[in-house]
Simulated scan of single mutants.
Amino acid sequence: MAESGNRNGQSLTAARAARWVARMGSDQRTPGDQAALDAWLAQDETHRRAYAEQQQLWDAVGTLAGDPAARAALQEGALQGSHEDEARLPQRRRFIGYGLAAAAAACLAVVIGAPMLGERTESYATAPGEQRSVTLADGSVVTLDTDSAIEARLTDGERRLTLISGQAFFEVAKDAARPFRVFAGRNEVRALGTAFSVRQEGTETRIFLAQGKVTVRKPGLPVVQMEPGEQARLTPAAAVAVGKVDPERAQAWRFGRLMFDATPLATAVAEINRYGARKVVLADPALGRMKISGVFHTRQPEAFAETVAAIFPVRLSHSGADTIILSPAG
């Protein structure tokens, strides 16, 4: 229904037009944004008129978005008579009236981070030992590993997810108009319809591609395209390292299993400990250098410890109800 005929409708149309102008003038726009804007403009003459007016306003504001002093003032809804602030602004910008400043502040808010219309933002998390699958509004499915958290923000132009901690597997619904972007730290994985996992551990990011294709973006480096069965490892001071891995091993956690193949015991213990309240402790760090192979249940640390004690010269003991100790035998 056309947004005209009353003051509220006109205000809503102007607000939407301002958001579109700011979006199309930012570096966050996507190919899908142009198509969505064209569709909105085609709905009604008032949309086209409001967009033209807001575009003129945006042009008048000029480079205020890049001026730190003006940007801070606009974010506070200011530019209202502080002589000190006026002194910091070039003379040619002082003509902006209070109404224009308020409108500019609204536009800047979009660039700085206000959500687009139709946006859905959700947060999901798991506790230690918990795994959870969630279906997003676009039909994509995200499986969170133990002690993991993501934020999902879906807009008309893109699907942006942030892995805050832990590990997640993404089964992406096809939508060519809305790129599916996953951020882990400063790194980005981008896909259309595919399935992949991302793990964030400290400053290291690991990406495994199960099917389809994704591109990996690390600031300052060329874009890397991955093939199914490959894992990418990203660390702060190195190029993106990509290599083939065992798909079953890379995805075993999704089915409540951990697969080790000549894995240092210290690494295996750290993985087991991610999944439950009961922790395995190595009494002697030297034990951590022993190599272990096998398939273990993520929620059965006792069974893991018993296997280690059975195949290595290691003694198993307990400290309270929540700690399993592995010590050198004898």
Rank of each mutant, 00 (worst) to 15 (best):
M1R: 11
R7T: 13
N8P: 00
G9Q: 13
R16C: 05
A17R: 04
A18V: 05
A18T: 10
R19H: 10
R23N: 13
M24W: 04
S26C: 06
R29W: 08
A39H: 06
W40F: 02
R48M: 09
A50K: 02
Y51L: 01
A52E: 14
Q55E: 14
Q55T: 14
Q56A: 14
L57F: 05
V61S: 11
G62W: 08
T63S: 12
L64S: 02
L64K: 01
D67K: 03
D67V: 05
A69N: 11
Q75R: 14
Q75E: 14
G77L: 03
L79K: 04
Q80E: 15
H83P: 04
H83G: 12
H83A: 15
L89V: 07
L89Y: 09
Q91P: 11
R92W: 14
F95W: 13
I96Q: 04
G99Q: 15
L100K: 08
C107A: 14
C107Y: 09
V110K: 10
V111L: 12
G113M: 09
M116K: 05
L117Q: 15
G118V: 10
G118M: 08
E119P: 02
E119N: 06
R120D: 13
T121C: 08
S123K: 13
S123E: 15
T126L: 03
E130M: 04
Q131E: 09
S133D: 07
V134G: 04
T135G: 04
V141E: 09
L144G: 06
D145I: 03
T146H: 05
D147R: 07
A149T: 12
E151A: 10
L154Q: 12
L154K: 08
T155S: 15
G157Y: 00
R159T: 11
R159C: 03
R160G: 01
G166D: 05
F169E: 07
E171I: 02
A173L: 07
F180R: 07
R186L: 07
V189N: 05
R190S: 09
A191R: 03
G202I: 01
T203L: 09
T205C: 04
R206C: 00
I207D: 02
K213H: 13
K213D: 09
V214F: 02
T215R: 12
G229Y: 05
A232P: 05
P236F: 08
P236L: 08
A237W: 08
V240G: 02
V242C: 02
V242Y: 03
G243I: 00
G243Q: 13
E248R: 12
Q251G: 01
W253K: 01
G256R: 01
G256K: 04
R257L: 14
R257P: 01
D261Y: 07
A262C: 03
T263K: 12
T263P: 02
L265M: 10
A266T: 12
A266H: 12
V269D: 02
A270Y: 00
A270F: 01
K279R: 15
V280K: 09
V280A: 07
P285D: 10
L287E: 07
M290V: 08
K291G: 12
K291L: 15
S293L: 06
V295D: 10
Q300Y: 11
P301Q: 09
E306H: 13
E306Q: 14
V308L: 08
I311M: 12
F312L: 15
P313D: 15
V314Y: 05
V314C: 02
S319G: 10
D322P: 00
I324M: 03
I324P: 01
I324W: 02
S327N: 06
G330V: 10
